[in-house]
Every structure is written in structure tokens, then in C-alpha cells.
């Protein structure tokens, strides 16, 4: 391989990396917001899955991919609200409610799919729209740069654009400061006159919106159908990405890219004689190793005061 060929090969990998990172990053940013508010959104996997189905259904019913996206976002937001309702009004346990939401979504999406299409596996009979990729004028024509910057999916652009938006929201706005105050000490925040429940509801609704966008990307990003359990653990990978992100939106992006890279690496190695079981476990081994390293680094800091 010549030097230029190597470069071209790497450049070819970038779109794959960004594509697999997109749902992880969107969901991880949602988890990030919820975690900062002290209500870690463990139901993110279920929110993605339900939103993925809702997107296909809304799109099939309306004939528009954008209505599908709106349906997915709304589903995520509603589930975020329901989760906060369970915690604050019904006083249910945060962790159990999140797990219950995931199980409900896994079973519920299959049930709805079967009722509407008679098929438990895929929504092939419903014709859903596909959200577009965007070519950026002028930049698209520049040789290497065009390949790197242009032609990605609209939700990929959204995901990366959300990183600075979330960072500014959390660090520079009154809303973000109050959210972090609630997450750090609900009692102290309440003493300062902040409505703790309202902030946590808002955090979970925002978290749900981002999970909804991640779900829409799964079912309407490059394909036009929903399949059973198509979130495939990406919500849990997003939870790992948030925990590895050192509590910042930018860190969460870096962790999402790392975990996405593991995914992309697997895709690039497929069909090259490596046992597929081993390959498919890689995206889950990487977060485990990363979390162990992360935990050790933290412990070291703690011991030395």
C-alpha cells in the first residue's frame, strides 16, 4: 500500500466512524444531561427502541420522514416525562424504573409491531421514509476534506452540533447551573429556591428527546424499517460513554468516538476470517476495559487526596 492509499483508506473509515458514533453520541448527551441533574437515565435503551419504532410508524402513516423524526422525538420526550413522573409523583426507585422502562420498551415494541404488521421481527411491510444525508456545497468538491466534512447524515451533523450546545447549556446558562446544583445536592438547591422536581423532569425530557433522535437514526438513518431490538445495547454503551466522559459534554463526545471506533473497527474487519462472535463482542469489551482504566485513574486521584 502506498502512502496515499493508506490515507485514502483512513479517510474512507471516517464516514463509518461518524455513522456508528451518531446514535451513541446522541444518547450519551442525553444521559449526560440526566446524570448532571442527579437522575441518571437508565431507560435510555428503551427510549431509543420505542422512538425507533414510533419514527417508522409516524413516517409510514404520514409519508414524511420528517414527521417520523418528530414522532420519534416526541416518543422519547414522553417516555422521559413518564420516567420522571414515576420517580417524582409515584415515588418509584430511579434505577428500577429505568430498568422497567427498558423491559417495557423491548416487549412493547415487539407487541405493537406484531399487531400492526403481523410480523414479530421486522416492519418490512410498512414503508417508512429515510432521513437524508447532506452534501455541503463547495466543501463537498474538495478532495479529502469533502469526504471528511460533507455527505454525512443530517442526524450526524445534529449529534456533533449538540456537543457545544449541551456544553454551553450545562456550563453557561442559568438552567444548566441549576440543573447541576440539583444533581449535586437537591437539598442545597431547594434551599436556594430551585424547584428540584421541575429541574429533574426537564432533564429527563431533554434526555428523552436526545434518545429519541438516536432512535430515529437507527430506523430511519440509512434504513427504512424497524427490527426487533434494533437498539442492540447502544443505550447501555451510551451510559458507559457518559461515565467515561469525566462529566463534560466534550468528554462524552470523546468517549462516544472511542466506543464508536470499536464498532467501526469491527465493521471494517468483517469478512476477513476473524470469528464473528469475537468481533461482535469487541464493542462491549472496549467500554468494560475503558471503565476499568477510568475507575483506576479516579481511585488514584482519591487516595492522594
Amino acid at each position: 500500500m502506498t502512502f496515499l492509499e493508506t490515507i485514502a483508506h483512513i479517510v474512507d473509515l471516517v464516514p463509518v466512524l461518524l455513522r456508528v458514533t451518531t446514535p451513541i453520541l446522541l444518547a450519551a448527551l442525553g444521559v449526560h444531561i440526566s446524570q448532571k441533574a442527579g437522575v441518571l437515565n437508565l431507560g435510555v435503551e428503551g427510549m431509543m427502541l420505542a422512538a425507533a419504532l414510533a419514527g417508522v410508524l409516524a413516517s409510514a402513516a404520514s409519508g414524511s420522514a420528517w414527521v417520523g423524526l418528530a414522532g420519534a422525538l416526541a416518543t422519547g420526550a414522553v417516555l422521559g416525562f413518564l420516567l420522571s413522573f414515576a420517580i417524582h409523583v409515584l415515588k418509584a426507585d430511579l434505577i428500577l424504573s429505568g430498568i422497567a422502562l427498558n423491559m417495557l420498551a423491548a416487549a412493547g415494541t415487539t407487541l405493537v409491531l406484531y399487531m400492526l404488521t403481523g410480523d414479530k421481527g421486522m416492519s418490512g411491510s410498512l414503508s417508512s421514509g429515510v432521513l437524508p444525508s447532506l452534501a455541503i456545497p463547495l466543501i463537498a468538491d474538495i478532495p479529502v476534506l469533502g469526504r471528511l466534512l460533507s455527505g454525512h447524515h443530517v442526524l450526524t451533523y445534529l449529534a456533533f452540533a449538540m456537543v457545544p450546545v449541551v456544553a454551553v447549556l450545562m456550563m453557561r446558562t442559568p438552567f444548566g447551573i441549576r440543573l447541576r446544583a440539583v444533581g449535586e445536592s437537591a437539598e442545597a438547591a431547594a434551599t436556594a429556591g430551585i424547584d428540584v422536581a421541575r429541574m429533574q423532569i426537564a432533564a429527563l425530557v431533554l434526555s428523552g428527546l436526545l434518545a429519541g433522535a438516536a432512535g430515529a437514526f437507527l430506523s430511519m438513518g440509512y434504513v427504512s424499517w424497524f427490527s426487533q431490538n434494533m437498539s442492540g445495547g447502544r443505550g447501555f454503551v451510551a451510559l458507559a460513554a457518559d461515565l467515561m466522559g469525566y462529566g463534560s459534554a466534550w468528554g462524552t463526545m470523546a468517549a462516544s468516538l472511542l466506543l464508536g471506533a470499536a464498532d467501526a473497527f469491527v465493521i471494517s474487519l468483517q469478512g476477513k476470517g476473524i470469528p464473528s462472535e469475537l468481533l461482535q463482542s469487541l464493542p462491549y469489551i472496549v467500554p468494560i476495559v475503558a471503565l476499568v482504566i477510568h475507575a483506576r485513574a479516579r481511585r488514584k486521584r482519591f487516595v492522594r487526596i
Binding site: 441549576r178 449535586e184 429556591g193
Partner: peptide
């Protein structure tokens, strides 16, 4: 104290009235 350690002095003082 009801202060939030990870916030700055100004953020703590003006919390809720930024």
C-alpha cells in the same frame, strides 16, 4: 454549609438569581 463544591463562588452565591 449548603454550598455546592463543584460550582464556583459566584455560581453558588447567585444560584437561582443568575
Amino acid at each position: 454549609f449548603s454550598l455546592l463544591p463543584s460550582l464556583t463562588v459566584a455560581e453558588n452565591i447567585l444560584l437561582g438569581q443568575e
